[in-house]
Amino acid sequence: MTLPTHVKLVEVGPRDGLQNEKETVPAEAKIELVERLVDAGLTNVEAASFVSPKWVPQMATSGEVMDRIRRRPGVVYSALTPNMKGLEAALAARADEVVIFGSASEAFSQRNINCSIAASIERFREVARAAKAHSIRLRGSISCSFGCPYQGEVAPEDVADVVRRLRDLGCDEIDIADTIGTGTPAKVQAVYETVAQDYPLARLSGHFHDTYGQALVNIYAALQLGVSIFHSSVAGLGGCPYAKGATGNVATEDVLYMLDGLGIHTGVDLEKVVEAGQFISRQLGRAGSSQAGNALAAKRHSSNQNV
């Protein structure tokens, strides 16, 4: 078994991680978080979401965040764009990458956006065309790829069907997401083996939630197949709205600790990510959910006290 020698991490904390926070997070804190993460070496940060503030009030400052962050050469700053209005806002904000999304579960699509999977993908055709016309990188994301809160099991072929649809829209990268965190290593490998028949494995990413404590083993299972792009969220920001009280996104610190232990290069400084996680946790007034992050922070605090 040969694992990838290099992994790209896509940091989703500033967008996916913060969007469900009930208390408003000031733009200044979001800007500092993005800059700390980039300073740590992360080269793809999901920093904004151009959706209606009525539905996601936490993302109302996305334009300000994108306008005020210090752009670093070689860093991709991504924004979620659900429609043409969102794309126009992303263009005005100089986003480097726009993200469109679909579901592998028909029941999830109907319950959440009141339309079929086919109709939801069709809605993005104009967005995808405009993104390409402006030479902006286009990423597609597929939710409920390993299970659905409404229909239960999701067949690998259903995921592959959405991959083909997003491929045909011109997506440069496609995320396979475990929205409710029910995936296990066998499911993960079955899905990737199926979807890789229609889309290059090198351009597929893994977005795993840790609701059932399976995120790291699922990442390892994907690594075994050669997947080399993964999403993570600093301090484990973000919950799972379909499992009350459960954690959501896998923590960047935990993923980095594992990858460092495997000798896989990321170009990311774990200590700086830990500092970023502690920073945003203080802003939110609670401890983050990263086990590695909290352990390393406690170790550093203990060392400082003993000096």
Rank of each mutant, 00 (worst) to 15 (best):
residue 232 S to A: 15
residue 233 S to I: 06
residue 233 S to R: 12
residue 233 S to C: 13
residue 233 S to V: 12
residue 234 V to E: 09
residue 234 V to M: 08
residue 235 A to Y: 03
residue 235 A to Q: 00
residue 235 A to S: 14
residue 235 A to M: 01
residue 236 G to I: 05
residue 236 G to D: 07
residue 236 G to S: 08
residue 238 G to C: 08
residue 239 G to Q: 10
residue 241 P to S: 12
residue 241 P to V: 09
residue 242 Y to L: 03
residue 242 Y to P: 05
residue 243 A to P: 02
residue 244 K to S: 15
residue 244 K to P: 10
residue 245 G to I: 05
residue 246 A to S: 15
residue 246 A to R: 14
residue 246 A to Y: 12
residue 247 T to C: 10
residue 247 T to H: 12
residue 247 T to F: 03
residue 248 G to E: 14
residue 249 N to T: 00
residue 249 N to V: 01
residue 249 N to D: 01
residue 250 V to M: 05
residue 250 V to H: 00
residue 250 V to W: 00
residue 251 A to L: 07
residue 251 A to N: 10
residue 251 A to T: 11
residue 252 T to H: 03
residue 253 E to Q: 03
residue 253 E to F: 01
residue 253 E to G: 05
residue 254 D to W: 09
residue 254 D to Y: 08
residue 255 V to A: 04
residue 255 V to N: 06
residue 256 L to C: 09
residue 257 Y to V: 02
residue 257 Y to K: 13
residue 258 M to D: 10
residue 258 M to F: 11
residue 258 M to Y: 12
residue 260 D to K: 08
residue 260 D to G: 14
residue 260 D to F: 02
residue 262 L to Y: 12
residue 262 L to P: 07
residue 262 L to G: 08
residue 262 L to I: 01
residue 263 G to K: 13
residue 263 G to D: 11
residue 267 G to W: 08
residue 268 V to C: 08
residue 268 V to R: 06
residue 270 L to Y: 13
residue 270 L to R: 15
residue 270 L to H: 14
residue 270 L to W: 14
residue 270 L to E: 14
residue 271 E to R: 15
residue 271 E to Q: 14
residue 271 E to L: 09
residue 272 K to F: 07
residue 272 K to I: 03
residue 272 K to V: 02
residue 272 K to S: 13
residue 273 V to R: 04
residue 274 V to Y: 06
residue 274 V to D: 09
residue 274 V to A: 05
residue 275 E to H: 12
residue 275 E to D: 15
residue 276 A to Q: 05
residue 276 A to I: 02
residue 277 G to L: 08
residue 278 Q to L: 03
residue 278 Q to D: 12
residue 279 F to Y: 15
residue 279 F to E: 00
residue 279 F to R: 01
residue 280 I to D: 00
residue 281 S to P: 08
residue 283 Q to N: 03
residue 283 Q to K: 13
residue 285 G to Y: 12
residue 285 G to E: 08
residue 285 G to T: 10
residue 285 G to A: 09
residue 286 R to C: 05
residue 287 A to W: 02
residue 287 A to I: 00
residue 287 A to D: 10
residue 288 G to N: 10
residue 288 G to K: 07
residue 288 G to I: 04
residue 288 G to E: 11
residue 290 S to T: 03
residue 290 S to D: 04
residue 291 Q to F: 04
residue 291 Q to P: 00
residue 292 A to Q: 12
residue 292 A to M: 11
residue 292 A to V: 11
residue 293 G to S: 10
residue 294 N to D: 06
residue 294 N to V: 05
residue 294 N to Q: 15
residue 295 A to T: 13
residue 295 A to C: 07
residue 297 A to V: 00
residue 297 A to D: 07
residue 298 A to T: 04
residue 298 A to V: 01
